[in-house]
Write a protein that binds this DNA or RNA. Structure first.
Lengths: 244, 244
DNA sequence: CGGCTACTTGAATACTTTCAATCCGCGTGG
DNA sequence: CCACGCGGATTGAAAGTATTCAAGTAGCCG
C-alpha cells in the first residue's frame, strides 16, 4: 500500500527524531508521493527548476550548491538523512539552489501542497518545522562565523565536529569515527579555502594528532581538543528533530 | 488602550509588509506586551539570558553577536526594522546570541507563548513566518558564500547591496542613498576582514566610483556595477514580509 | 603496465594582517 | 576663540598567510 513507507520508515524510528502522533503520521503519509534513488554526483534538483514537491533525504549525503551566475557550482552545505530539500522552492515556485548527491541517495517526495496544508493545519508538526528552521539558521550562522574569522584549522575543525555530531544523532557515527565521503575539493569549497591549502591543513591536523581523514573515513582522535579549537560550543542536537 | 500600538503601527502600513486580516491582527494585538526604546550601543538581549518573549525591531539598527566563549563579541548580522529577535530563545529557553543596538532603537514585545499559540492556530501567519525564516536562511547562505569565496570588494559590495535593498523595501532608502551607521570595525567583523583592510578597500571602491561611505551615509554611485561585482543576483524582496 | 584521478608537496607570487604613525572632525575647557 | 584631547579613519611598511602553478606520488581499474 502507498503509505506504508512512512509508517515503517527506518529513519523515523531513530531516537533523534520526534515521534509523530498517529494523526500527524496519517497526514504525512497522505501527502507522500513516492521515493527515488540516485547515484553519486548527480543533481537531485537544479537551480531554476520548478518545485516538484518537498523532498526529504533518507539515505546518503548530498550538498547544496547555490547558483552564482557565471561561476562554477560551489557547494556550501552538507545535507544528511532527515534534511529537507526544496522548502524554499515550495514557497518561491522554483529552486534557487542545485542539490547534488555526494553518495548514492534515497529521498522521499511529499506533495507540493504539503507546506500549505501543514500550516493550515497548525499544531505540533508546524512548530517542529519552525524549530527545525531556526536550528538550520543557527547552524548556518556558526559556519558563517568560522568563515569570517576562523583560521583554516578552526574552519575544518568545525566542519568535522558539526558533521560528526549530526551523524551521531542519526546513529551513523560513533564517538571517534564517521564516514566522510567528501573529496578535498569539496571540503575546500565548503570552508572557503583552496584545495591545496585544505590538503596542507589536514596534514598538519593529522601530524598534530587531531583528526585523520583518509579513505572517506574521518577519525577524530582528540574530540575535546577539536572542540576547544573551534571556539564554538559544540552544538547540542539534544532536541528531537522533525521528520516528514 | 493596550492594543492600539499594533493597529496603528506605522511599520505595518508599509508596502513591504503583508497586510493582516482583522482576526490575525486581533491575535497579534492580544499577545502584545509593550514596547521599549534603547540608546545606541546597548544590549537588547544577552547570550545566556532567559527568553522574555519575542521581540520585533520597530525603529533603528541592531546587530546579532553570537557568543563565542573566550572571544570578544563580534557582530555577524544586521537587524533592521521588522526583524525578529529571540525566536530561537523562545524555543530553546535562553538566548544564544547577544543583540546590540547600533542606533537608538524601539522594539515591541510579544508574549513568550506567542509562538506556541501561533502554531496551534496555524493559518497564513504561520506560513508567513516559515516563509520569512526560509528567506533569512537564504540571506545567511548568501553571506556565507561571499565570506567563503569573495574577495574584499565582493564582500563589501554584497553587504551594501543587500542592506540597501532591505532598507529600500522599508522605505528607508532611495535608489542611490541610505543611512549606514556602522563603523569600520563593525563592517570588518561582518565581512570577516581587518578594520584596516576594510578601510583600504572602501577607499578603493570610492576611487573606482562604486560607492561612497562617509558620515554614516552610504551613496551607491553605480548600482548596476555593484550588483555585477557581487556575482549574486540581487535578492528580490518582492514578496510581502511578515510582521508581528 | 599505462592511464586516470585524487592527493601531496615545493617554490614563487599575491594577498591580508599587524603595528605604528598620522590625520581629521568635533566637542570641551581654558 | 583657540588649543587640546579623543575616537574614528587612513596610510605605510613589515610580517604573516593563502593561493597558484607545477611537479611528483599513490592507488585503482582496465
Amino acid at each position: 500500500m502507498l503509505n506504508s513507507a512512512c509508517e515503517t520508515c527506518s529513519l523515523r524510528r531513530k531516537e533523534s527524531f520526534q515521534p509523530l502522533g498517529s494523526e500527524d503520521l496519517d497526514f504525512v503519509s497522505g501527502m507522500w508521493r513516492g521515493e527515488k534513488t540516485l547515484a553519486a554526483f548527480h543533481s537531485i534538483v537544479r537551480a531554476g527548476d520548478p518545485s516538484e514537491g518537498l523532498f526529504t533525504l533518507r539515505e546518503g549525503w548530498a550538498a547544496i550548491c547555490p547558483d552564482v551566475p557565471g561561476q562554477p557550482l560551489r557547494m556550501t552545505e552538507i545535507l544528511l538523512p532527515g534534511d529537507r530539500i526544496g522548502l524554499g522552492a515550495c514557497l518561491a515556485g522554483k529552486h534557487r539552489y542545485t542539490v547534488v548527491t555526494l553518495t548514492r541517495v534515497r529521498y522521499c517526495i511529499l506533495d507540493h501542497l504539503f507546506l500549505q496544508k501543514l500550516t493550515q493545519r497548525g499544531g505540533s508538526l508546524c512548530l517542529a518545522l519552525i524549530r527545525s528552521l531556526v536550528e538550520e539558521r543557527s547552524r548556518r550562522e556558526r559556519m558563517a562565523i568560522l568563515l569570517g574569522m576562523g583560521n583554516p584549522i578552526q574552519r575544518l575543525a568545525y566542519l568535522f565536529l558539526e558533521t560528526s555530531m549530526r551523524l551521531k544523532a542519526l546513529g551513523l557515527a560513533d564517538e571517534t569515527m564517521c564516514p566522510f565521503p567528501l573529496r578535498r575539493n569539496h571540503i575546500a569549497e565548503i570552508v572557503g579555502l583552496s584545495e591545496v591549502h585544505v590538503s596542507r591543513t589536514l596534514a598538519a591536523m593529522r601530524r598534530d594528532g587531531l583528526i585523520d581523514l583518509s579513505n572517506n573515513i574521518l577519525i577524530i582522535s582528540d574530540h575535546k581538543r577539536l572542540a576547544a579549537i573551534t571556539g564554538l560550543n559544540p552544538m547540542t542536537y539534544s532536541h528531537k528533530q522533525l521528520i516528514f
